Computed example of a mutant assay.
Amino acid sequence: MTKDGTAQNNALTLVGASKNFGHVQALHEADLRVSAGRVHGIVGDNGAGKSTMLKILSGLHKPDSGELRVAGVPVSFDSPADARDHGIATVYQDLALVECLDVATNLHLGDIPKKRFFVDRKRMERDATRVLADLNVRVGSVRTPVGMLSGGQRQIIAISRAVRLEESKIVLLDEPTAALGIQERGHVGDIIERLKTKGKAIIIICHDLDFVFTYCDDITVMRLGRTVAHLDAATTSRDDVIGYITGARQGTAA
């Protein structure tokens, strides 16, 4: 570990990030360190700064100060496309799926394969089938309209689309279990585990502490725009995390 908290296997590091929106300070010198092959949960109450941090990591916002590094290299994103070019895939809470289109088409939105002037439907379905099989995802046919899938299946399709390209080494998930039942949360958890075994760094913003403690290796707690704790999930209790979230337990990130 170096003096500034970076490590050789850190896939993504955010150091001293601050962000203001007018007179509102959304982030104040926030930090984050995420390692490859691990699942990292970011937790905190509403207004803690989690969403702002996610938008900085995904290229939607630029920090007013601080430094973002990918694989130890300082980077600056001007757009979500820049983040994607650096191997960061983001799945937002609204999923951004088109319900009237089928699974294969949704997996290729923004990157529809063509043969001359026409959509290469066979290639698109073949690629979709391969991606879903690789993640052990079962949705029946890739010709099934997304609007006919369950909430959990839609979430999995959105994740599959985000990581379809092999260069996606870091995956950001915004509230992946929102409005899902117990069984569907388990299916999303299974996908996260498979991505972890592929060596990807997974970052989850989540209010569901049961899900966090089930699938996350590391936990960062945010409060009022600050990072207040970096925790090892295996040696941390739920009460400790709640204490940091509410302010009943004081701490500064190590």
Rank of each mutant, 00 (worst) to 15 (best):
A30V: 08
I42S: 06
N106R: 08
N46T: 11
R138T: 14
L101S: 11
G37A: 12
F77A: 06
S51A: 07
G41W: 00
G72H: 08
S65G: 12
V131C: 13
I88T: 05
H61P: 04
A104R: 08
S79T: 12
G59M: 02
L107A: 05
R123Q: 11
S79L: 09
S51L: 03
Q25I: 13
V91I: 12
P113A: 02
V98T: 14
R38V: 03
A104V: 09
A36T: 15
K50D: 05
Q25H: 14
G110W: 08
S58E: 03
L109R: 11
V91P: 02
L135V: 07
R69Q: 09
N106Q: 11
V73I: 14
G72W: 09
V137L: 10
H28V: 14
P74R: 08
P113G: 08
L95W: 10
R123N: 06
K62T: 13
L57F: 07
R33C: 05
D127L: 04
G47T: 01
V142T: 13
R33A: 04
M124K: 01
A81P: 00
V43Q: 00
G47K: 00
L60Y: 15
G87A: 05
I56E: 00
N46E: 09
I88P: 01
V137S: 06
K114H: 14
M124P: 06
A81L: 12
R69S: 06
K122G: 04
D111W: 02
K55Y: 06
P113K: 05
G44Q: 03
A96V: 08
R126W: 01
G44N: 08
P80Q: 06
N106L: 02
D134K: 14
D85P: 00
I88M: 10
A128P: 12
D102N: 15
L109P: 11
E99I: 01
I42P: 05
P113V: 04
G44C: 09
R126E: 13
D64N: 11
A26E: 01
A104N: 13
V98F: 13
A36M: 13
R38W: 12
A26N: 00
D64M: 09
G44W: 03
S76R: 09
L60R: 08
A30Q: 05
G37M: 10
